[in-house]
Computed example of a mutant assay.
Amino acid sequence: MSPRTELVTTHALYGSTTKVFSYPACADNSAGVIFAIHGFRGDHHGLTRIIEQLPQYTIIVPDLPGFGASTSMQVDHDVDGYAIALNDLADELQLPAGAILLGHSFGSLVAAKLATQRDFAALLLLNPISELALDSSQAFIAKLTGFYYTLCAKLPSRLGEAVLRSTLSSDAMSLVMTKSKDPQMRGYVRDQHRAYFGGFHSRDTLAQSYQASISGTVGEYSRAIGIPALLVGGMLDELGTAQTQETLRASFNQAELVMLPEVGHLIHYEKAPETAAAITEFLARQDV
């Protein structure tokens, strides 16, 4: 599959110079527009495999302010701050009324919040945050990680930056989160994390965004969302078990849940074809 055409635009959002990456549909008649929000410590590259699997859609992915090629905002880098900024960005981009909204992981929180503020045709949530990290089986790791980000933000600048951007840090995350036993896939995930895991603008932004990522769930917004929603989770995801994903699904007015086997929190890497197939089938049923 050949790489898609990429268009890059620059936008001013609350003090941030925000880069937006757009991928026009590969067919004369686009099936629609997807506005996509990446996860914590990621950028638009993290959704590359999903984008490649959905050539019939025009897909627009901003690097969230403070990550990737976008600088930090002058407002809080939390769910509310990002939702406000992306709502303004959607206006500037003149998103069509029938646009589809997609969010992965932390991006699922932002997308869910944005869906309560703006009209979309459908909502796609990949590895949605369905339980509080501090109440889950990963509570100790979440607390330890929070301490890690707070400490690195207080260390002397050169030392703190070096620790946060180290290969050791990204490789440790890859080792823990990747469930595939395929060496090629494991290598791909490792290389993606090495290349983009360190793409944050400031230590303070990183620490603030992490706290936001573990402090809420999509369930805080789901009951206020009236559009059709698709949730795609991983059966081995410690950050969102099958039980809590089903509870989350039931809290929506109209939602479907697809749980993919043998994958955890990285379905956008490890199960991109299966995830894209679930998206395509769902949107076909919604006629959007």
Rank of each mutant, 00 (worst) to 15 (best):
F147Y: 12
Q117T: 01
Q245M: 14
D63C: 09
G107R: 01
G226A: 07
Y188K: 10
F282K: 04
G233H: 04
V163W: 10
L13E: 08
T9A: 11
Y82C: 03
H265Y: 06
Y23D: 02
I267M: 08
Y23N: 06
F197H: 13
N253G: 09
P24N: 07
R158F: 15
H45C: 04
G216Q: 15
T10Y: 08
A12Y: 06
A31C: 09
L125P: 01
V232A: 07
T217G: 06
P3T: 12
A69R: 13
H38Q: 08
L54C: 08
L89K: 05
N87H: 07
S30R: 08
M1F: 06
I267E: 01
T217E: 04
V263C: 12
K19F: 11
T205M: 10
G233F: 05
L89V: 06
P128G: 05
E238V: 14
G39V: 02
R285A: 01
L134D: 05
R249L: 07
A250D: 15
Q184P: 00
I84D: 12
L102F: 10
H44C: 08
Y82L: 04
F120H: 04
T178S: 13
T116G: 04
F40K: 00
G219C: 10
L7Y: 09
E6W: 01
P183I: 11
F140D: 15
N253H: 08
A121C: 07
H104I: 00
I51F: 03
V20P: 12
E131D: 09
S70R: 00
G233T: 09
S169V: 15
F200I: 10
L95S: 03
L125W: 03
P65I: 04
A278I: 05
D80M: 10
L151K: 07
A172T: 15
L124M: 02
Q94S: 12
L155Y: 06
N253C: 05
E262Y: 06
T275F: 00
I227H: 07
L151M: 15
G39N: 03
D78N: 12
G199M: 11
G234T: 05
L102Q: 06
